[in-house]
Design a protein around this nucleic acid. Structure first.
Lengths: 200, 200
DNA sequence: GGGTAAACGGTTCTACTGTTTCGTTACGCT
DNA sequence: AGCGTAACGAAACAGTAGAACCGTTTACCC
């Protein structure tokens, strides 16, 4: 009943194993996608015992959830350009670059797929976006303070509105969003915010 | 080498089997999600030979793709309200109702998950949305003709912009969009279109 | 530096997924 | 109605995912 393995002695070998497994899992995801993720294969690539992978992560979704948690730790700081539209543009460009990156893009698709069938992964995903949205929400609040956006604008909603079309395009058409798409996403969210759609 | 089974004699028993299997597959997807879809289990529920399911659909993604094709056949006709905003509202409400429906919502999540790891499913999904978007694009074109929206507005982009936030919310937060969310989605797309974001 | 137990890893085993075979049913055609 | 064969279905078979066991390594504490 020692809770979860890896929590009592997280240093040294345990950390090395975790890093190797997550790296290998990422590689497999990029190459074969979510349902090609075989834990035995991951163990082989990571040069780690198959038992260890099954014991610590248990299932494909558990592994993906941990991979996401690992990614969440390396979130990039927000840029500030001086205007709400500029900040939203910067955000859109960042999201687009993330989705366009072969490794991170594949990872996001896998994570979203995993979240649709596993509650724990879904929670991890939710928390990830909460952090990301909270990081960027201030740019909307500053826009309100500057008088660029209406008072009472829901900052989180605006930030989410920037990401939505980019994710939607990637997931439903499979086409990786390009720079103009990011520009449109930023301008659309800005225009809607200015029009007061996100007030109240 | 008789091509695909079910193509030469598609009537009678074959059709009954297909209907039973698709129904059972939908049930499993709703209950357990994409990776809980076991073909043997589906066969059992459909009261159909396990062999048949494997022979005709082969894999989980193949079955999901067929399920999607079946869904595409029952697309609802577009409503017309007399204004671009009203039409976009109607579209948003329709999309929201679809996602909120326990069966269809779960199905969509599963299909999107499946599309992330199987090219054939991804194609089926793409075609599905092409049809849906094409069905609703005329309401934007009418809006342009009426002078409500700028000349040169990309009709498809506007229609997609309505759906994007609703799907994004469902997939990343797991929260089923409510009526106000649909209203916001419609107004945001409309505001962005009016501002000329989708021109060119 | 030594003790303790947490975590790893090789092997074995079981249960289940997916395939193959072959006999049976019934669809479509005349 | 009767025939030929497409499609179905039960059972035997194969391959593998994932769990259990147990010895080995090594991280943490003193």
């Amino acid at each position: 009943m020692s809770a979860e393995p890896g929590t009592v002695r997280p240093g040294g070998r345990t950390a090395r194993v975790r890093a190797a497994v997550l790296r290998a899992a990422g590689d497999v995801l990029v190459e074969q996608g979510f349902d090609g993720l075989d834990l035995a294969d991951v163990a082989r690539r990571a040069e780690v015992g198959k038992t260890t992978v099954y014991r610590r992560w248990g299932s494909v979704t558990g592994l993906v959830a941990d991979l996401l948690a690992d990614m969440a730790e390396q979130s990039l700081p927000r840029e500030e350009t001086g205007s709400a539209l500029g900040d939203l543009r910067a955000n859109a460009a960042l999201v687009r670059r993330t989705l366009a990156d072969p490794r991170q893009g594949a990872l996001f698709r896998a994570v979203i797929a995993a979240a649709t069938c596993d509650e724990r992964t879904a929670q991890a995903l939710r928390r990830f976006y909460e952090v990301r949205v909270a990081e960027w929400a201030p740019c909307v609040e500053q826009g309100v303070a500057r008088g660029e956006l209406p008072v009472g604008t829901d900052a989180d909603a605006v930030v989410r509105a920037v990401s939505a079309p980019l994710y939607y395009q990637l997931l439903t058409t499979g086409v990786i969003p390009d720079a103009p798409a990011a520009e449109r996403a930023a301008r659309a969210a800005h225009a809607a915010a200015v029009a007061g759609v996100y007030v109240g």
